[in-house]
Design a binder for these strands. Structure first.
Lengths: 169, 169
DNA sequence: TCCAAACCCTTGGATGTCCTAGTATATTGC
DNA sequence: GCAATATACTAGGACATCCAAGGGTTTGGA
């Protein structure tokens, strides 16, 4: 957003940590801070691409998830688990997507507690277009070298498994 | 975050991308999604550690930044630039920190447009304690292997530089 | 059978981030 | 010197995320 800084603020922070005698954790601190900032940059790029479609990243993720569901519908709690966000965030996203006629709520046939979310034809079309845009403008231009991409997937995959995201492998 | 999933949802998404003929961008998509999720996990850990201090990550970052400033005070716009967040986010954070008597606003001596933020004694003490807690509970237990930490710092550093965060190096 | 515990979704509140103005102060150019 | 432009902060609104709490539904043990 603003002008580029003359120096890397995270490298400066790492030096500050070392200068204060926290050298043993300065590097992980820098790595974690870098992850936070990278996420911010990537999210901004994604939101920029999605804006013309009237979508935010949260809503896009839900549309994309539904578009890959075999039956075309998912229970809210399943979506919450797969997207790894709080159930209330799904409620919020579905409210807005439903208002835009991109998804529809329907009662679960056998479990009265559960609500199913289903893509409308319009929602499926928009998901396809938005995905094409993201692939072309963000994922296809990530700026990461292919080996770095593989390394990120491996390292962050291990981290997420250890953090309790999933148990496989 | 509920129970761990049986399978890695990001690996599943990558397979879905490949199945739909987007194999050329499936890996970057997975890496970027993993960064988003990792950030979410790390932020949750950080917020958990900071909660007993009555701090959020945004407010902690500001306190930490001020505690490293030589003069002990920084203009708001400088803080905004160094933290790489929107000026209104700094206004928001300062409002709350000021209400908690951890920082104080003061007019800039020569530039009437500028407001300086300064740590109070209380703020400086709290920043020190919060940093110690974060070092012990989060940065010291990141779960990343030392070589992976170095790799992350390097790869994400390049990414941030290319994204226009800074110009050095 | 029946009631307590577990589960699912929604509402309301707190935070944070950004954007778009709007106000006030500085700086620049004629 | 004064008007036009630039800069700094704040106000209000849109979104997203989480937590706590509430109401409806199902399940399972006494």
């Amino acid at each position: 957003m603003g002008t580029p800084l003359p120096r890397d603020p995270i490298a400066d922070a790492q030096r500050n940590w070392e200068r204060h005698g926290w050298g043993d954790v300065a590097a992980p601190m820098a790595a974690i801070t870098a992850i936070m900032r990278t996420q911010q940059i990537l999210l901004a790029r994604i939101e920029t691409v999605l804006k013309p479609f009237g979508l935010t990243f949260a809503r896009y993720e839900l549309l994309a998830l539904l578009s890959f569901a075999r039956s075309g519908a998912l229970p809210m709690n399943k979506a919450s688990a797969l997207l790894q966000v709080h159930p209330t965030s799904v409620t919020n996203a579905v409210d807005r997507l439903e208002k835009a006629a991109l998804v529809a709520r329907s009662p679960h046939p056998t479990d009265g507690r559960t609500t199913l979310i289903e893509l409308t034809a319009e929602g499926r079309t928009l998901a396809k277009k938005a995905t094409a845009a993201l692939n072309a403008e963000v994922f296809g231009k990530s700026g990461f070298r292919p080996d770095d991409v593989d390394h990120l997937i491996r390292v962050l995959g291990t981290f997420r498994r250890d953090a309790g995201d999933f148990t496989e492998e």
